[in-house]
Structures are given as structure tokens and as C-alpha cells.
Design a protein around this nucleic acid. Structure first.
Lengths: 231, 231
DNA sequence: AAGTGGTCTAGACCACGTC
DNA sequence: ACGTGGTCTAGACCACTTT
């Protein structure tokens, strides 16, 4: 006799067990929801909830009519949590500091124009440093579209970072992120207090609110920085 | 009169609209599920589904009894999809290539032992190169615990990468990932065909199957590599 | 103690994709 | 055409927290 699986977490655990134990091997078609429900002694909605969760984790492929199959090559999905830099620093138990380096209205260089699709508009350009315990932590290079961030031109950003202000005052509907590595230029090395040519972790992020570009920011982290995530 | 919101996606969209329009401002307590259900003209379960989805995206904080609040600082969550390297290369439209550099049973250095918590066991050490259109794409440095990957010792890994074999044959229950930037050592530069000291994007990943370590891998990507994700 | 979200149920209908 | 997952409903009970 099988124990009854009364809640969706229990069903999920049993499904995961069968996958890991290869009772359901990669590529296999598993029983449909109705059959599993009667086997597990619960409602179909409960099985659905469990299978949906496992599918979202990438271990199952579900298709109407075709049924549910164990994923052949489970694509690992790591979820990065990207918080405000001040939070990130303080969560590491360090004292946060901030300094504005530059604030101007400028026509951005071609790559920025292309990424934001803002043609030849003049954007607010902010360069700033974030510190952890007095040491440079990250160098922020940001372009803000005043059209997409009402009120931004009234902000001096001398004590509060654009990073923080935008998150609280400017909604966005979509965005993308790119992570990469790059060598520190002489200027960047000076700002970050490292050697020129040092390997830096870079995060570039664009956000939009509907069709209108809000901001593009490139964060260069001091050498040794790493981002963690769980699978 | 309000239009009826008949499905959870429509409810979700309306909730997002209210958050973005600041009708529900950060920190605000929003109406409870029952009230929203009657306002939207749908069942409470439908509202629940929608609110749960928004909360999973980080825009709402939900607590029993305390109610649902708009998140003060929505933590951006970027989901990285980490596929098999061969897939990754082929999806870019390039021809994939693979070469084994080293295969041995060795006692790993301290950092690896510590990360995997394998005490002084002897592990399988694999070093290999992945190519895209003939050019080095990524350098793989991997340690495999034979205890966690039955059958791995029978694999030569001369034509099929450990990356691929493990994903298909070895289940895991948890893992972690770290992303960072580092300078190429002389040896790494030789393998990757770049200059020593070049900034490389590094991905280090540990996986376990329950309490037993399965593998630890460090992937060093050729200069210029970036990882993309959406928000 | 009471209010809120979390979940389960049984049944129903629908949408999609394969056959 | 038809089988499968996707979703909705109405009602119910439970679990967690705050009051």
C-alpha cells in the first residue's frame, strides 16, 4: 500500500524521489494528472500544483495532450538576487559609504544609445562610488532617461545614490542583465583603488517602463567580488 | 464599473498596473484576497494564484494575518539558465568542439576539499577544453567524487565531456554557483589562447546528491564572454 | 481570539497539440 | 477528434501571526 500524499509538497517530494531514483528516467512519459491523483489519494489540483512546481524547476517538460516527460537535460536555473548596493554591503556586515563622482546632462556614446534605443536624446549621466568599510566596493556608471524617470532632474544624488532613488521612485516593467569580466582601465583602477588591468566583475543592466527606456547602469566591482546563487 | 478579471493572468496584470501606477505604493497594505475577489468578480483561489505569482517575483510581501504589502525594495531576481556547454555553443550557431587535457585520480587541493567536504578522499580530476568554431570557448577544471557519481570511473571522457555525461547520468539535489572575474594565469592563457593576465569570466559550481558531494567544476570562459538574463 | 493567507476538494469547462 | 494539462469555482478547513 502507498501512503497517502495529502499536500502538494509531499507529492512534489515523491515526484522528485522517483526522478532521482530513475524510476522515471529522463525522457520518460509519466502518468497523467488524473492517474497520479488517484494513486496518491488526493485531488487532481494538488497533483497539478506539485507537477507545476517541479516543471518550473526545470525537471519536467509539460505539454497539453503530449503529457508530462522527465526533462532530458535539466537546464539548471540559478536565481540571482540583485538588491540595492547599500543593502548588499550592510548584509555583509560592512559600513556603507557613497560618493558622487560626476553628474551631467550629456549625449551618451553610441553603445548606450543603441542599448536604450533613445536616438540622440540628452541623458543624465551619473558616475559614483560605493564603499564598504571605507574601501571602494563598486563603481557605478549610469545613464538615466529623464522621460522615463520623472523628477530625476531634481535629485542631486550627492548623498543618496541613483541606485537607491530609482528603485524607490521609478517603476519598470522589464529589464535585462549581462554579467562579464573586464580589465580595469587606468581611470577605473584609480577610482577603485586597484591596479590597472586587474580583472573586474561587471554587471550591466538596462531597464524599461513599457516602451520608454529608464536607465542603463554598469557596475564594476572591486577585484575579488563574486556573486552567489543556489540551484 | 470595473471590467471583470476572469483569469489569474488578468488579475496579475491589474495588480502590477496598480503597483506601477503607485495606486498601491511601496509599503502599503493591499486589500485581502476575499475583498479583491469580490471586486474582481472571480474566486478567491484565482486572486491567490495571481498574488502568489507577483509575490514570487518579489514585488509583494505576504504574511498570514498581517496581510499583503507592496515590497519596499523589490529585490530584482534574474534567472540564469545554465545549460550544457555544447548546447550553449550550438545555440550561438557555432560548431562545438571538445578536447580532454587531463584525467587522473588525485587528492584535491585544500580549497576543493573544503568546498566539497570530502576530507582526504581521492577524486577524479578532469581538465578539458570546449571550443566554438575551433576557438577555445571555455576551460573546464572539474573534480568528481566517484562515490557520488557511480560509473564515472568507467568513462574516458575523451570524446564526451564530463559536463554532459554527469548531467545525464548523475542526479543531484542541491548545488551552488559563484560567478566572478579573475586574471588568466600563464597556463590558463596558453590553454585558452589569450594573453596572460586577461580578465576571464569564471563560474564555479558545486553539486551534491543529498549529503554526498558529486562534483565541483570551475569554468573559465575565453575573454569577452558574458552571461545574459532577463528581469 | 480573530483575521489572513495557504491549501484541499470535487467538479467543470477550456485551450492546446497531437493524432 | 480527442486526450492532456490549464484553469476556474464555491466551499471548507487549517496554520500562522498578530492583537
Amino acid at each position: 500500500m502507498t501512503t497517502a500524499f495529502r499536500n502538494w509538497q509531499a507529492v512534489q517530494q515523491e515526484v522528485l524521489r522517483r526522478i532521482h531514483a530513475r524510476e522515471w528516467a529522463p525522457g520518460d512519459l509519466i502518468p497523467n494528472e488524473a492517474d497520479l491523483a488517484s494513486e496518491f489519494g488526493c485531488a487532481r489540483a494538488t497533483v497539478n500544483r506539485a507537477l507545476r512546481a517541479v516543471a518550473e524547476a526545470g525537471l519536467l517538460d509539460r505539454k497539453r495532450k503530449a503529457g508530462t516527460r522527465v526533462a532530458l537535460q535539466p537546464v539548471a536555473r540559478a536565481t540571482l538576487s540583485i538588491a540595492v548596493i547599500r543593502q548588499e554591503v550592510e548584509e555583509k556586515g560592512a559600513r556603507y559609504g557613497y560618493a558622487l563622482l560626476e553628474r551631467s546632462m550629456t549625449r551618451p556614446p553610441a553603445p548606450v544609445r543603441a542599448a536604450l534605443n533613445t536616438a540622440d536624446a540628452t541623458l543624465l549621466h551619473i558616475r559614483a562610488l560605493h564603499f564598504a568599510d571605507g574601501a571602494p566596493y563598486a563603481l557605478e556608471d549610469r545613464w538615466i532617461n529623464p522621460q522615463g524617470a520623472p523628477g530625476v532632474l531634481d535629485q542631486p544624488f550627492e548623498t543618496t545614490s541613483a541606485n537607491e532613488w530609482l528603485l524607490e521612485h521609478t517603476p519598470y516593467t522589464r529589464g535585462d542583465i549581462a554579467l562579464s569580466a573586464q580589465s580595469a582601465t587606468v581611470a577605473e583602477a584609480r577610482d577603485l583603488g586597484c591596479d590597472a588591468g586587474a580583472a573586474l566583475f561587471a554587471l550591466t543592466r538596462n531597464t524599461w517602463n513599457g516602451p520608454v527606456a529608464v536607465t542603463r547602469v554598469r557596475l564594476l566591482f572591486a577585484p575579488g567580488h563574486s556573486m552567489q546563487a543556489d540551484l
